[in-house]
Design a protein around this nucleic acid. Structure first.
Lengths: 198, 198
DNA sequence: CGATGATTTGAACGGTCGTTCTAATCTTAT
DNA sequence: ATAAGATTAGAACGACCGTTCAAATCATCG
């Protein structure tokens, strides 16, 4: 009744790490179970010992990645004292920690009619995580009197789509070089919502 | 030496129409040549009579779609009298005519290592088309004295990513319902760049 | 040691897909 | 009408992929 017999858990972790890397680089459809097998050094059969199928593996990795992103944000969140600071901090957090390539390959899975509806739903649910984080900051800003009263749902979507759009640039550009762009987006957005900013 | 013998050109057009539709709905990898054959009613062999391979077909369709989008914009462009009006007009043009699903599936092709570098390059070049259209409006606004002097390249990227991000919503929402969101994005953006807008 | 159950492998299956090839059909020109 | 060339169909190939399965290996416990 030991927790670990002979390190199957370690193998599972290694498989997941290589799978995340491959899905991010090549996308969902273009990453084969054989690729994951070769990269991780474990047989294809062994992957199916740990995971029901490729689809479930991908959904699990996506959820775990998003969870990880959110947890890291919550750690930073309390280090800022104003909602305005939080917005700039969030922009950097998105730039450096949002796993755009992995989450984008989820669209491949979601657009495939053969994918199980359950998996597709689980992937769509992931989009709620960042949106609710953005919304929390905006709400806090209103409550604290930093931001004007406005349509918070609309603001959330506008902010989310802008940051999401900017993230697509991470394919082709250095992250460091994108910092001014992300900050400028926040600055422009703040002009709209900040009290006395008109 | 007639132009059309017996309507092979018509067949080619029909194949292209169905291919665009399928690539948009199911993505690049999940759309097989067999799918296009079934949908169009022409045999797989016939598709290869008109097109060198699946990859070239997709690139051609992408280019044609982008060209079409740009041409339609140029027709509208001259009906607006100010750069400000053009920005709002562009937002609607993007919302209703930018073929997000098709162009997104280009990322599947581009992320596949087996794709020919030439095709990947051609797809990346497509991104220049909308960006230069945005830039032209911003430049005109500055020249006409509507907009302040600022970093036009940065503005172009910020506007482009925002509209691009908003386009992702067209998957799940009605286009009509997105109009206020697109307009609001332009309004916020204009507050930053409009003369005397501070 | 020997049994038991967890772990791991690698071959094999069934299916799909992009592409090629050959033959058949059709149009046009002579 | 018949040859020549354009067009179309459909079978076939070779490669790959997700998944299954039976057998082999290993750690632990009685």
């Amino acid at each position: 009744m030991n927790k670990r017999r002979y390190d199957s858990e370690q193998a599972k972790v290694e498989i997941m790490e290589h799978a995340v890397s491959l899905f991010s680089q090549k996308g969902y459809n273009q990453t084969s179970v054989g690729d994951i097998s070769t990269a991780s050094g474990y047989s294809k059969g062994h992957i199916y010992y740990h995971f029901e199928n490729k689809e479930k593996l991908f959904v699990l990795l996506s959820q775990q990645t998003m969870q990880d992103w959110h947890n890291k944000w919550l750690q930073k969140d309390c280090t800022y004292s104003t909602a305005t600071e939080k917005l700039y901090g969030m922009a950097m957090h998105v730039l450096y920690h949002y796993q755009t390539p992995l989450l984008r390959s989820g669209q491949e899975l979601a657009s495939n009619p053969k994918s199980s509806p359950e998996s597709v739903q689980q992937l769509y649910n992931l989009a709620i995580v960042p949106m609710s984080a953005y919304r929390a900051i905006l709400q806090e800003g209103i409550d604290r009197g930093e931001f004007i009263h406005g349509n918070i749902d609309e603001w959330t979507v506008l902010l989310g789509t802008w940051l999401g759009g900017l993230c697509q640039l991470t394919n082709t550009q250095e992250l460091k070089a994108l910092e001014p762009l992300f900050n400028q987006a926040i600055t422009i957005f703040l002009k709209e919502i900040k009290k006395g900013g008109i």
